[in-house]
Each structure stands twice: as C-alpha cells, then as structure tokens.
Nucleic acid binder design. Structure first.
Length: 712
DNA sequence: TTCCGCAGTTTGTAGACAGCATGTC
DNA sequence: CTACAAACTGCGGAA
C-alpha cells in the first residue's frame, strides 16, 4: 500500500518520502483497511519496531486536518519526550505534559497533539482541564500496561473517563502481542489488527554448551572463556554487532560489564572521551567503575545511574562505540535502543514474598524485541541461556513458543481503587454509590466479566474508608467530596498517604525535620530503601538518641517497614544537611539516580503536606514550607535566603555563605565586585540585575506576597 | 609465612508515575 | 516461603 494514496496531508507524506518511506508495512496496511481513516477504534497488537508510531501519527495528522485534537498517552516520561521530538517539526503544534517536564503547559490546549503520561492525564482530568473535552482522537501507547498491578488501573480509568466525556472520540490502542487481544478490542469497541510481522528477521534461540539452538538450525559459538554470557557477546562483536544483556539485578549488571570490559579490551580515543566525561562528572564508586568499563567498550545500565551517565551510555551505544550494555529491565521497556543480539541471561527474578520467579512471557518478548536494528542489522537474535540439556526444551516451551499472557484488569484492587473512586466523586463523574458502580461497569474489569460481587464489596469498603476519613460526605442523597477530599484528589496523592500525614499532623505538637521526613517515608506513596543487615546497627543507634524526635511511634518489635522508612528518612535528612552526593551514595549504598528519585518523591509529598497543613495544622505550614525549599535544593536552613535568587543553587549559595554573604542584604552590601570574586563576574552581574528588580517588586506588591522580605 | 584455589556458607535481590512554578554548575 | 549468584570464609597444599 502506497502512502501517496492515503488520505494524509501531502506535507507529511512528502516528509516520509524524504526518509525513504513510501510504502506501508503489512500490519500498517492492515490498520488502514481496518478503518484507521474512517474513525474506527483500533487495537493494534504487533511486535515492537513494526511501525506502530507511524500508524498513530498518520491518524493524528488526518484527524487534525479535519479540525480535531489528539492526545497521545505513554507510560514513561522518557517515552513522552521521545515521541514529542518525533512528532515535532512536521507542521502540527505539539505539546508535552509530564510531571517533570511541562513545555508550553499554559498553552497546552492550543496544540494539535499533546503527548502525556497516563498519570499526568489523570491529574489534568482531576483539575478539570477544559481542553480535554475537545480530544477527538486518543492514542494509548503500550496499553497492555493495563495489567500492571500498581499503575494499570490509572490507564484503564483514564480511558474510561475520556470515553465517558467524549463519546464520539476515536481510540487507537497500541499494544505488544498479548494473549487475549480480542477481549481488549471488545472493550474498546475496536477492530483488532494482530500480526507477528517484523521489519527485521528475529531469530530466537537457546544457548547450551557451545552453540545456540534455533528452531531449525544451530549456530556454533567459540568458547573462549568459562563464561557463556561473555562468549556470546564476543561472538557477536567479532562479527561487527552489538549486544544487550538483560540480567536480574544491578549487581549482576555491574559485574557483567566488568567481565565484558576485560574480555573486549577495546581502546580508542572516542571511548576514552566518553569514559572521561563519565569519570569527571562521577563522584561515586559506581561512576568510576562505569567509566572504567566504558573505556573498554562495555557498560551497565540501571536506575542508580545519574541522568548524565545514562545519556552518555545510551549515546555511546547508539554511536556503535560501546559494544555491549548489561542492563536491568530499565532498557526493556524504555528507550528505543536496539542491538543485533539480545541475551536474556536471567529469566528468573526476585519478587518480594515469592522468591525467584520466572519473568512473564510478555517481558521476555519485550526484551527479545530489542534485537535487530531496522536497516542496520541483517537480522536480530534473541538468546536465552540454558544450564542443562533439559532446560533447552523447557525454555523453548516456556518462552519462545509460548503464548503471551492475557491482560487482566487491575481495577478492583482496593489500594488503587481508593484513589480512583475519590477522584470520580471529586470531579463529579459519580455522585452516589450507584453511579460509581455504573461507571465501573464501563471499565475493562467489568467487560472481562470478573466477579462483579468482588468489585461491589471493594467499592463499598473504599467508600466506607473515604467517609470515615471525611474525604467524602453525604449531602442529601448525593455523595460529595469534602474540601479535604477534593484537595487530596487534586494533589494526586494516595488517600491512605493523606490519612497517615493528617493523623500525625493533628496529633503532633512539635515539629522536627527527621520526624516529618520519617512520616512521609512511612507513606505508601514513598519508595523506600532496602535495609541491609549492617544498616541495623546505625539505625538502632539513631533510635537510641532520637526516638523522641520521631512523629511516629516505633514499636520495639517493629517489622522492617519501619526500618525502611527510617533509613530513607535519614538519607533525605543528609541531603537537606548538604551532605555530598558521593557520601550519601556510599553511606546508603545507592546510586545518584536513586538519590534523585527519592528527593523528587519526597519533594512532592512535602508539597502536598504543606497544603494539608493549611487545612488541618496551620502552625506547621511555615516549617513545612521551609522544608519544601530545603529538600528541593538540598540545602541547610542558613542558605534559604540566597537560593531565592535565580542562578543560585546549592553550590553557589554555599560558596557565598562561606564568604560571609548570608542574605540578600549582605549581597547588596558586598557589592558586585566582591560577589564577582566569589562567583565569577558574569553570574554576579546577573545576580545584581535581579536584586534591583526585586527591590521594585517589594515596594509594589507588599509584605504578604514577598517571600524575599520574609527571608531576606 | 604467604599465596592460591577450592568448596562450603552467607548475603542480598527491578523499575519509576504524580504537584507546582520557573531556572543548576 | 521461594532461588540464585556474588562475596565471603576457611581449609589445605604448594612455594
């Protein structure tokens, strides 16, 4: 099927033609035949890299040409920016909305295409964003994530809410191959387009002893070492390809990268350049190890890496310099980083409470699908590693020839239901129990015919909880969100977190940093650190001295949840005490990426707490507001006045302070020359430009508005 | 005495969304 | 309560 014959804008078609795309892949053609351009809903269940994005893009351009507006939902921020870049510059106005990264937020609604994470869309719905009613085409990427226990319900509810709001809206759902696509298509009233077709041939096999067994052939692999995984990598690299190795833990990823580095021993100036960049920005041991590996053409990738480290590793691999990345599942679902050979080394993964469990077939497919770069590799290979002859057949049965798992709704799980039911009531989607149940009737859960009684019971328990917490109340025959409930819904925190926070705040008489942080860390919205055996001593010692500063009682026979929140709180307290990132990483055995993630999470909860304090504990508002700034910047109290100025962060503020400049006043007194000596002339000039502006503002606006006057 | 290899024992275990209001080194 | 690999420990033998 020729693109030129399709009802897409000529500019778009011309753009494709310039990139050599003139004809549709078979599954894409199937989408057109299924009614892509005639407003039909579609469920497109085809492998990664077989052109799903193009299908969506054509539909969006077609839609906009007819006066429509499109919303493209993705599960990850990184994916959002990837799609934003991809859709931009092709004649339409494109906007992006994620938690950390709002470009053109204010004018978001003016765009033709808006790319957003599912949580962000949910939040926009809760805040009654008007332009959502104008969406005429909804694209849901990776819709199989509906099955995710913690985040799946959000995807499902967002789809249900938008359909409820915009009955005529076209839906295009993009999915990996799943076991029950017809089921999902049925719920969406969608035509099903299913295919196994791929632009690059994918061979899946199992390695044992000295060869990869494919379904109909064997590929010999030279054994150079005692490590199967290493030999598999060397085999591909000597052939001119790159490898991705998926392993089960960070430690494994690092260990393998070291092994691969000494096995590859590549050395060239470009790699040395990457290694230098990583080394110079890295203050942690992990960063140094990474740099040493990269210098020899290998790297590891997991969530402990800083943004910069991640970017450098990804860039080096894309460029073809880094030959192998060993990775935890970060790379499986995230960015588009294909390699000729994918080695799924660890197909067992630790699950809390269950021990080592085989990873799902869908996840194996996700990783295997990364094999083979379109137009660059002659083929892609996905290899599992067997430990025994019998395992070869087992792995073939369990993964390569297996059906993908069914997707199941996760809506009825009480923990997530809680937040979604509150939002239904707070935004007026449902005004009484019957309407809540009626709305839930339009979900995938109900469509799947899973026990309606279980759902009803769960809904009743949730309503009871929300009523008891006074987040909802009865007004006549209607249910309404209280001010508290509506705030919790808009803040987008788990109602259970809000309860934990509010209960402690109303009981507590004295504010302490560690007490407050510990409280937030004990909340279900906060990710917590793993407690190792040798942490116990330090935690006990801290408790011995500071038990009375905590807001939450710690029973002597506390389970590990308390330890985890305490350890996490201590990390965050260190962060607020300007303890260096390297020291924190070492002390808590985490990477810079973890610190960043935890600071981000707690900053969000501190922010929410400030609003909650405004309602329930006004006396805590001031200290919490102070804490909000301190966590955000990672500074001690004494630097608060200084970071008010644009261009001054934790490092420059500290430098000023140590030079005796501790306030706005002191800055003025010191004058541009002295400040210039401390910070450099350029920045000093910038600072004083602002100081003059600020003075005018204070005069005009008055005490209340000016935070500057309060701190300075 | 020191070093090495081996076998048995202990230890630790993936990821990442959301608010708000603008700018780190 | 599940399972695995890396890190650690202790032992014996060689240098």
């Amino acid at each position: 099927m020729e693109i030129a014959d399709l009802p897409v804008p000529p500019d778009l078609a011309a753009g494709y033609a310039r990139r050599g795309i003139t004809e549709l892949y078979p599954p894409q053609a199937a989408c057109v035949e299924a009614g892509l351009f005639s407003g039909k809903n579609l469920l497109v269940a085809i492998p990664t890299a077989s052109g799903k994005t193009l299908v969506a893009e054509m539909a969006m351009h077609h839609q906009v040409a007819r006066g429509g507006k499109c919303l493209y939902i993705v599960p990850l921020r990184a994916l959002a920016s990837e799609k934003f870049e991809e859709f931009s510059g092709k004649g339409l106005r494109v906007g992006i909305a994620t938690g950390d990264f709002d470009r053109r937020d204010e004018y978001l609604g003016r765009n033709d295409i808006i790319v957003a994470t599912s949580e962000k869309v949910d939040s926009l719905l809760r805040n009654r964003t008007p332009w959502l009613a104008e969406i005429s085409l909804l694209v849901v990427d990776e819709v199989h994530l509906i099955d995710d226990p913690s985040r799946g319900a959000t995807v499902e509810m967002v789809i249900a809410k938008l359909r409820h709001k915009n009955p005529g809206m076209q839906i295009i759902a993009l999915s990996a191959t799943i076991g029950n696509p017809a089921d999902l298509a049925g719920w969406l009233d969608a035509e099903l387009v299913e295919s196994e077709w791929r632009p690059v041939d994918l061979r899946e096999g199992v390695f044992f002893e000295d060869g990869i067994r494919f379904a109909d052939s064997v590929r010999e692999v030279e054994r150079k070492s005692k490590y199967e995984d290493l030999d598999l990598v060397l085999d591909t690299v000597t052939e001119g390809g790159q490898c991705l190795v998926f392993v089960s833990s960070r430690k494994n990823a690092e260990a393998f990268a070291k092994r691969a580095a000494s096995g590859l021993k590549i050395a060239n100036p470009i790699l040395a350049g990457y290694a230098d960049k990583i080394r110079s920005s890295a203050s942690t041991d992990m960063g140094k190890i990474l740099a040493a590996c990269v210098a020899q053409g290998a790297a590891f990738h997991h969530a402990g890496l800083s943004r910069e480290e991640r970017q450098l590793v990804e860039a080096g691999f894309r460029e073809g310099q880094i030959k192998v990345i060993s990775s935890t599942p970060t790379l499986a679902a995230g960015l588009n980083l294909p390699a000729r050979r994918v080695i799924v080394r660890d197909y067992l993964r630790f699950n809390a409470g269950e021990g080592m469990m085989p990873i799902p077939v869908r996840e194996y497919r996700q990783m295997a699908g990364r094999a083979g770069r379109p137009r660059l590799d002659p083929y892609g290979e996905a290899v599992l590693i067997a430990k025994s002859e019998e395992m070869v057949d087992e792995l073939f049965d369990y993964y390569i020839e297996a059906m993908a798992e069914d997707v199941r709704s996760r809506c009825a799980e009480e923990a997530v239901l809680c937040t979604h039911i509150l939002s239904l009531i707070a935004t007026g989607f449902a005004r009484e129990r019957g309407e809540v149940l009626g709305f839930m009737d339009g979900t995938f859960y109900a469509h799947q015919g899973e026990s309606p009684r279980a759902l009803k019971r769960a809904v009743d328990r949730v309503l009871e909880f929300l009523r008891e917490a006074e987040m909802i109340t009865e007004v006549g025959e209607w249910l309404e969100a209280t001010e508290y409930g509506s705030l919790v819904s808009r803040l987008y925190i788990d109602p259970r977190s809000a309860e934990v926070i509010v209960n402690a705040m109303t009981r507590q008489k004295e504010y302490t940093d560690i007490g407050f942080l510990h409280l937030l860390c004990a909340t279900p919205d906060m990710p917590t650190l793993f407690v190792r055996k040798n942490d116990m001593y330090a935690l006990d010692r801290f408790l011995a001295d500071h038990r009375d500063e905590l807001w939450m009682e710690i029973p002597w026979d506390a389970d590990e949840g308390f330890d985890r929140s305490l350890k996490t709180a201590l990390l965050l307290a260190d962060w607020g005490d300007e303890v260096g990132e390297d020291v924190i990483c070492e002390r808590y055995s985490v990477g810079p990426g973890d610190v960043y993630g935890m600071v981000e999470s707690v900053a969000w909860l501190v922010h929410a707490s400030r609003h909650l304090a405004g309602l329930f504990a006004p006396h805590l508002k001031a200290p919490i507001e102070e804490m909000e700034l301190r966590t955000k910047h990672g500074i001690k109290k004494e630097l608060l006045p200084l970071i008010r100025i644009r261009g001054i962060g934790r490092v420059r503020a500290r430098r000023l302070f140590n030079n005796g400049i501790d306030s706005i006043e002191a800055l003025r007194e010191a004058g541009p020359e002295k400040v210039g000596k401390v910070l450099g002339q350029g920045i000093a000039a910038q600072v004083f430009e602002q100081l003059d502006g600020v003075r005018d503002e204070i005069g005009g606006v008055g005490e209340e508005q000016s935070t500057l006057s309060r701190f300075g």
